[in-house]
Design a protein around this nucleic acid. Sequence first.
DNA 1: AGGCTTGCACGTACGCCGTACGTCCGTCAA
DNA 2: TTGACGGACGTACGGCGTACGTGCAAGCCT
Lengths: 229, 229
Amino acid sequence: MTSEPLSRKRIVAAAIELIEREGADAVSMRRIAAELGVGVMSLYNHVPNKDALLSGVAESVLSEIEFTDDPAAHWTDRVRIQARAFRQIAHHYPRSTMLVVSRQLHSNAGLLPVERALATLRSAGFDGPEAVKMLRMFIAFIVGTLLREVGVTPSFAPMPATLRADQVDPELFPTVAELAPMLDRCDPDEEFDFGVELLVQAISVHRERAPGEPDALPGSAAPSPERLG
Amino acid sequence: MTSEPLSRKRIVAAAIELIEREGADAVSMRRIAAELGVGVMSLYNHVPNKDALLSGVAESVLSEIEFTDDPAAHWTDRVRIQARAFRQIAHHYPRSTMLVVSRQLHSNAGLLPVERALATLRSAGFDGPEAVKMLRMFIAFIVGTLLREVGVTPSFAPMPATLRADQVDPELFPTVAELAPMLDRCDPDEEFDFGVELLVQAISVHRERAPGEPDALPGSAAPSPERLG
DNA sequence: AGGCTTGCACGTACGCCGTACGTCCGTCAA
DNA sequence: TTGACGGACGTACGGCGTACGTGCAAGCCT
C-alpha cells in the first residue's frame, strides 16, 4: 500500500510541505503522520521528538541554498551573489524561513554559508575579527529583511492593513500619516538589493581605513567620517 | 484575599513577568491564572484569547521605549540615540523581545518609534521614499541583531556551544575553523554600536549623492562608489 | 423593599497536542 | 524451527486553548 518505507527524510519532507501549504501552526506529529498515511508513533522510530524534526526542517531548507561561488570574481560581486542565494530559498520556502531564522541550530548544517561568507570577506582583505563583524552585520540585515518580507515582524515595519490612509491620527503621527502611501507598499526585490548595496558600500569604505590587500572598489577613494570606530 | 480586581493590565503584566522568568514556552492561560491566584476562565473576561494577550505583551513592552528626542541635535546623533533606546528595552525584557519582534502588530502601539524615526530622517534631508527605505534598513538591522543577542537565531550566527574549537572539520570549513575563537565570543555592545555607525555612515554618503539640506556629516565629503543604485 | 439587569469569577467539558510505554508482526540468522 | 530484533501501531496520560453554563454581588428602577 504505502510504497516507500518511511524515513527521517520522508518525514522532514512531509513537514516542509505541510508548513508551506498550511503554515507552521498546522504542524503536529498527528498531522504529519496523517499526511504520510501512517500511525503517529511510527514517526518516533525515525525522529527523537518534534523539536528535532523541526531542526531537521531547518537544516533541510538551509542545505538547499545554491552556492555558485566564483573565487575569481570581485569580492563585492561574491557578497551580492551570496546574499541573493540566501534570499532565494526564503522565497522558495517562505513559511519555513521563519523557522530557519528563529531556531538555534545545533549541527554543522548551517556552517557552509558561514564558511563561504568568511572566506569571501577574508579574500577582500579583512582580518579575522573584522570579517566576523561584517558577517554578523550582513546576517542581521538579511534575517531582519527576510522576516519582514515573509510577513512576520510588526507594525513598525509596518503592516499594510492598519494604516491604510485612514486609521492613523495625523495629529499624533504627522510624518507617518504623510508617508503612509509609501509605507504600505514597497518593492521587496529593490529594497533588498538597495540594502545589500548600502552595506557593500559601507564595508568598502570601512575596509580602506585599515587597508589589507590593494583590492579597491573602483572609484571609491573615499575619506571616511571621523565618527566611525 | 486578592486585593486588586483583575484587569487586562494586570494580566499582561503577569504574562511579561512569567515570560522573563521562565521563558515564552512557559506561558499558558492556566499558568498565568495560577500566577494571579485566579481561575483560568476569569482571564477571558478581560482578554478575548491568548493571541490577543500576547499582542498586549508586545504592545506593553514596545510602549516602554524611552524616546528623549532632541530635534536640535545632529540627525546622526538622533539616529544613534533612537537605535540604542530600542535596544535598551530588548535588554530589559530579553525573552519578550522575541515576541515583540516576531509578531505582526495590529494596533498603533508601535507607531511612535516609526514616527520619530521618519521625522528624524526627513529632517536629515531625505525625501519620503528615501526615508522609508532607510528606516526599513535600520529596522532590519536592529531586529536581526536583537534576535541574535537574545539567543535565538541559528548556527550561521553562530552558536557558541557547537563549534567550540573541536567539532568543526577544518577540511570542510577551514575559515570557520580558523576564526572559531572569534565566532563564539563577542562584545554585543561594541558590535551593535559598530553596526549603527556603519549604517549611519552609509546613509550619510548616500544622502550626499542627492543633496537635500546642507546638513553634512562633519568630515565626510566622500565621493561614493559607482555601484550604488 | 423587591425585582431586574449586568458583570465578573469560576467549573466543567471537548478536542487538540506531545510522547512514554507496551504489543504485535515480518524478517532474518542460527 | 526457533529466537531475536526492528519497525509500525494503539492506548493512555497530562497539559493545552477555549465554548458554555452557573452562581454571586452590585447597581439600577420602581
